[in-house]
Design a protein around this nucleic acid. Structure first.
Lengths: 339, 339
DNA sequence: AAACCGATGGCAATCGCTTGCCGTTGGTTT
DNA sequence: AAACCAACGGCAAGCGATTGCCATCGGTTT
């Protein structure tokens, strides 16, 4: 320790210190720093100079306490280890930083009550929240939206703005793709029951399959993890279907691994389509045909919609819904149906 | 909107509301809630009951302002999209939640100045920080450690407790493994120059290779991304080495993809060893032989070391260093040397 | 019985910043 | 020249907790 380690670690400067040096009132310092056009340019410059010399950093606590705004936005994801959400997180992170907000990331562990609880606890300390793939019920969501600014991703609701990834329309492409390879039956490995996208995907498959005269079956639900893929693979195989669509890539990759173990050849014996085009889908074996979408952008858009909600004046027309396009990305896990 | 939506969203209850109902002073409420043994059991129970009826949630802002503690720990990672850090994040997240802290995740984008800047800004609003793979210089680290409680992961320094992942010792195993396959020369695809682990790994390789009479070469630096793998692969190939070790799995997987494109067969033509055993290393093609370590646990340990630093009384003996074991995980990307 | 004492609860000062309200000041308008 | 007005700064009251200090009180110790 250097002799002056004490003094340098002493105490963080406050607006009062600045005010004293500048010979003005603290209110002026406060305004100069957070409402620049409210004070004379000369005064402001002087204050800014002193502030930077002192390495002044405003206390977000104090600021939040008196202003009511915290500058923090919570981002809730069901599973922080699912690469799909990484891209969302990256998107929200970027956009939030650009807007001067801090991101508070929370892993709700796929649990409704954790999600609800977190939201309640965080109501005070955040200005709003982005719910990615929320597991809440409509009612819970409505109640929550009443109390704090919210934007959901992949979870439509009338009570809050939503960013939707338009998977269903790409599901149609996927079925066409499979049909063109001569597949007659397809099985859907479902995700969590509480997942809204899961229902949506199945509906789309069911419908599109009917239209094309294909048989659509459904197995599951499975946890959206590679680990669950083994069970899904076995079940899928026993349906006799030659084509399968998985709730997400994680599950699909797990299935791929299981097939490999069992000596089932992909795409020779079965074709498989994932969903999300997450990290890893391009380098697994075989590379996964999947439904890609601008996930990171979805995160960005969600944040900008939230910003618009927080500040309706500058926010432009607050959109209630944004739909992100998707497309089928054909790689090597799909091929002609077995003889 | 229901008629009473206004009133219910009205205002969050404060200790004053509780105090009024309970007929005590706010100080008593404060104590009952955060220093239970300081007030009579009966009074406490009454206050607790009222608090829960009111759905009281303490304002972390106000608490922080007056107590000086924030209940927030910052976790800084160089790249939030690198799966290696996912496990660290998960580890810190778990341990922090268990200790009643909130995790503030920050992506420093591999940039020293972002890291430094963040640390300065966050000094006020956090109680401490975990620096994963910090890119700071020794001096910067020392200065920072003087001002705020810190724990580093994979970045040794005398100024702060450190969690080290003992990759070097597994590197020796890796070289033995390669040597036993008849490889005579190995090339190391280096990571970022500012990465401390990078230096450490290269040192270990150099040394171990010398001891075994193998030739060790080094190429790079490369950004630790799959994308950079292409360049690394090409450069590695042109060295003529038959075995390669990559700074991390991300880079290794990128190399794998490039080899695939160029028709170089792994492990027939070249063998490749990654580092970290991150998500995806088990299902890439071929599955990657890599150096595995308990990354999530490293995150946990880092947090508990930080906790010990924050509260030296209950924290037990504050360890200054924890070394996590590693081991070579042999999969399919390594095999006999050609010829 | 006098002096003491630990447990309990209240008072009031802070923490650092924001903001409504008001007073000054120097320039404009009529 | 009287009346006005916008721009600028200061005053002071909070925001919601924590905490040092003190008063009270029933029970002990000598």
């Amino acid at each position: 320790m250097t002799p002056d380690s004490q003094s340098s670690a002493d105490r963080m400067p406050t607006i009062r210190d600045i005010a004293e040096i500048a010979g003005v009132a603290t209110s002026t310092v406060s305004r100069a720093l957070s409402n620049p056009q409210r004070v004379n340019a000369r005064t402001r410059e002087k204050i800014e100079r002193i502030a930077s010399e002192l390495h002044y950093v405003p206390s977000s606590q104090a600021r939040g306490l008196s202003s009511g705004r915290t500058g923090v936005i919570a981002v809730l994801v069901p599973d922080i280890t699912n690469p799909f959400f990484f891209d969302i997180i990256r998107g929200t992170q970027h956009q939030l930083k650009a807007s001067g907000y801090t991101q508070l990331l929370v892993d709700t562990e796929e649990a409704t009550d954790v999600e609800l609880d977190t939201l309640r606890k965080l109501r005070r300390s955040t200005d709003g929240a982005v719910l990615a793939a929320s597991r809440l019920t409509d009612q819970q969501l409505a109640d929550t939206a009443l109390r704090q600014p919210l934007v959901t991703i992949n979870r439509a609701t009338a009570d809050a703005p939503t960013v939707l990834i338009d998977t269903p329309s790409a599901v149609v492409q996927a079925l066409e793709h499979l049909a063109s390879f001569g597949h007659k039956s397809v099985v859907y490995a479902a995700g969590p029951t509480s997942s809204w996208s899961n229902h949506r995907r199945w509906k789309a498959i069911e419908e599109a399959a009917a239209k094309r005269g294909m048989t659509a079956m459904r197995i599951g639900p499975y946890a959206p993890t590679a680990f669950s893929g083994a069970a899904a693979a076995d079940a899928a195989l026993s349906t006799g279907a030659t084509a399968m669509i998985a709730f997400n890539d994680l599950l699909a990759i797990g299935m791929l691994q299981r097939f490999h173990e069992r000596g089932v050849r992909v795409p020779l014996d079965v074709s498989i389509v994932g969903c999300d085009d997450m990290f890893g889908s391009d380098f697994c074996n075989p590379p996964l045909t999947t439904i890609a979408s601008p996930v990171e952008q979805a995160g960005r858009v969600a944040v900008s919609m939230l910003m618009a909600q927080l500040d309706p004046i500058h926010g432009g027309t607050p959109r209630k819904l944004a739909v992100m396009p998707t497309h089928l990305k054909i790689r090597a896990s799909t091929g002609p149906a077995r003889g």
